[in-house]
């Protein structure tokens, strides 16, 4: 590339500063990670990847993140649609609320969610086995025995289980889907929907055949971001998860416990694996975004 003279000044200064700062804060530590994880040789990776506890934690992280991304995808699209297309009182406040997980410290979210879903918490009380029955009995003056029997077995353990982890990850991932889908819905051409209507498609058909395929790539990209964020999430999960090895121990937590046991090589290897995974997820999301841009290009 030929050297071009720039009209605006400060190119070298700003680029030089950016690269220096980036090298100190990001690149040097990553080099340390690569160095440390290579110190253990191939063996440390194979032993890490065959360790049952590691595999259990990775599987748990992936499955809970996957379910969380699915839930975020569903509610994220609904919320983005409501925020963009409907007018209702409090719409602006809700729009601002969506960013709460970006602004609320994860530790605060963690203890709040844990207390909420603990067996004696506001929601945990209702969700735990027999919770619905107790609610029914306390609300109705003369409880119907048949209903009591029906409600008795309903319920599940929310906090200190993989369900609890999923709940925390839904909270963390939600804004990623909404904020990716919202601009796409905003950019939808109303004329295209009108064209579908003039061709005899009812609203439901228009939604499934025209709107949904258009927002699908963006939704998937947002869900991938939510998934990527969820796999690495720590603060909001550790309180609600219960941290039982092999059962509710997520991968980032295992890194922490390896560090606490001074197993630096093992922590580095697992950290490196997590890093590669998040890099792949980011790449995949970018591919989805560019697929979306190509399709909606006019």
């Amino acid at each position: 590339m030929a050297r071009t003279r720039h009209v605006l000044p400060g190119f070298r200064l700003s680029l030089g500063y950016t690269i220096t700062y980036l090298s100190i804060i990001v690149l040097a530590p990553f080099a340390a990670l690569a160095w440390k994880s290579s110190r253990g040789g191939v063996e440390i990776f194979t032993s890490t990847l065959t360790d049952k506890r590691v595999l259990a934690s990775l599987e748990l992280s992936f499955t809970t993140s996957f379910y969380a991304a699915l839930v975020c995808g569903f509610f994220g699209v609904l919320t983005a649609w409501a925020l963009e297309r409907y007018s209702f009182p409090g719409r602006r406040i809700l729009d601002a609320m969506v960013d709460l997980p970006f602004a609320l410290p994860t530790a605060v979210a963690g203890i709040a969610l844990c207390t909420l879903y603990a067996p004696n918490g506001w929601l945990g009380k209702i969700l735990s086995p027999g919770g619905l029955k107790n609610l029914y009995v306390s609300w109705v003056e003369t409880p119907n025995q048949w209903v009591v029997n029906l409600l008795e077995p309903i319920g599940f353990k929310a906090a200190y289980s993989s369900t609890g982890i999923t709940i925390a990850l839904i909270f963390i991932g939600f804004p990623f889907v909404v904020r990716t889908v919202q601009p796409i819905i905003q950019g939808l051409s109303l004329e295209v929907e009108e064209a579908a209507a003039c061709l005899g498609a009812n609203r439901w058909q228009t939604f499934w055949r025209v709107i949904f395929p258009t927002i699908l790539p963006g939704t998937l990209a947002g869900m991938t971001l939510a998934f990527g964020r969820a796999v690495g999430e720590y603060g909001s999960v550790v309180f609600i998860s219960g941290n039982m090895p092999f059962k509710t121990e997520i991968a980032p937590l295992l890194i922490v416990s390896r560090l606490e046991q001074y197993n630096y090589n093992g922590a580095a290897a697992l950290g490196f694996i997590l890093l590669v995974i998040s890099f792949l997820i980011l790449l995949f999301s970018n591919l989805l975004q560019s697929w979306n841009n190509k399709r909606t290009a006019r």
């Binding site: 051409s189 004329e191 295209v192 009108e194 064209a195 579908a196 003039c198 025209v210 258009t214 006019r298």
Partner: peptide, 10 residues
């Protein structure tokens, strides 16, 4: 109905 900007399903 035919729209000015086509409104085709891309």
């Amino acid at each position: 109905f035919v729209f000015q900007h086509y409104a085709l399903f891309n």
